[in-house]
Design a protein around this nucleic acid. Structure first.
Lengths: 204, 204
DNA sequence: GTCTATAACCTGATAGAC
DNA sequence: GTCTATCAGGTTATAGAC
């Protein structure tokens, strides 16, 4: 009743463009994407991109901020829970990533590539400090393993979780795996990684 | 004595161009690189690129093949040694990668991005099958852990080793680390990863 | 708001002098 | 072999009709 237009089952033009931009930018990156590709993907005219968003760069920035949030935004809330154990946090992080990346396999390679292409624009955007300074996770980790730098642990956890998606073409070829088989291995990693990380926490 | 020119301490123009191309392509990727960038980096004129190499794409292909070899070429020889143990092979792989990536930190993100951008051109170029079908490494791994798919192990090993370089800007920010501190952590990983991988091999 | 047409600019590649 | 000058084509962005 409060809507501007009573019947509006279809998405707005603006949203169509954003959705097309998400797809094309994530797949090809900023430099290799032409605004024409996005317009075509959206089934719209090129001029509308500049009507709704001022420029290719402005549209990209919007998509990029979303993707940064998507890739890193869920991390802190999980890691700062006070009641969950370290092992449970690892389980939750791995689970959340494999869920999300199964529908967005290109996300990590896209985000990390674009951060490197323009570090000062996007690098700072991650409120990076707070994850390792303030979180309950780090407190627990320091308590359990005062001998190791927390980031060493984070590197390995993220590496084990994200790398299979970043290096998928190569890994899939190395293993002579079908898409279905690869997906099954990702499912298996939900339990495999927490188990392995548990072993890492105990060693020495 | 057999040289065409008696005095030639300086590098050839062709090699200057290739060296500049290595640097710029690896840093910015194919799409974001302009042939003018390469010419400028080489301290030469743009026309010379097309004189020595036919096109941007042809020059890129040469660099890309080199970089593929650099990233994956040393893997099989190490993994197919008959006399070394599984643990020793892991040590050697980790050591070789950390050595090489310390002077070429952009290499993995570059190669993996470009493979994704053009999978049919470069994907096949890695004689991928042989690493996991034929190598002595896989034989040892199957023997030790018949319950797990070898690729699961490879994913984790490569992830722990390569990801710190792929995600460096983010990880360095997360940890509030200087370049020097980051480098020290990479050195520490030479022994840390083999130790952790050893724990993974034993768990359950 | 949406389109077509076109401006303004950039990029890869080449022609031709030296 | 190396340079300057320039072409041809493509790309972002805008003007203006509807």
């Amino acid at each position: 009743m409060a809507k501007k237009k009573p019947v509006e089952a279809d998405v707005s033009t603006e949203e169509k463009i954003k959705e097309a931009a998400r797809k094309v930018f994530t797949q090809k990156g900023f430099a290799a994407t032409r605004t024409r590709d996005i317009a075509e993907e959206a089934g719209l005219n090129l001029a509308l991109l500049n009507y709704y968003f001022r420029s290719k760069q402005a549209l990209f920035d919007i998509v990029m901020m979303e993707k940064l949030q998507q890739l890193f935004g869920n991390l802190y809330p999980i890691l700062d829970e006070e009641i969950t154990t370290l092992e449970r946090k690892v389980e939750m992080v791995v689970h959340a990533y494999i869920d999300m990346l199964s529908s967005n396999p290109d996300l990590p390679l896209f985000v990390l590539s674009e951060i490197r292409a323009d570090p000062e624009r996007f690098g700072q955007r991650i409120q990076a400090g707070k994850i390792l300074r303030d979180s309950y996770f780090v407190k627990q980790l320091r308590e359990r393993r005062p001998d190791m730098h927390p980031i060493q642990f984070v590197m390995s956890l993220m590496g084990m979780t994200l790398f299979p998606f970043i290096g998928r073409p190569v890994l899939q070829a190395i293993g002579s795996l079908s898409a279905k088989e690869y997906q099954a291995l990702m499912e298996e990693r939900r339990t495999l990684i927490p188990k392995w990380v548990g072993a890492i926490l105990k060693v020495k």
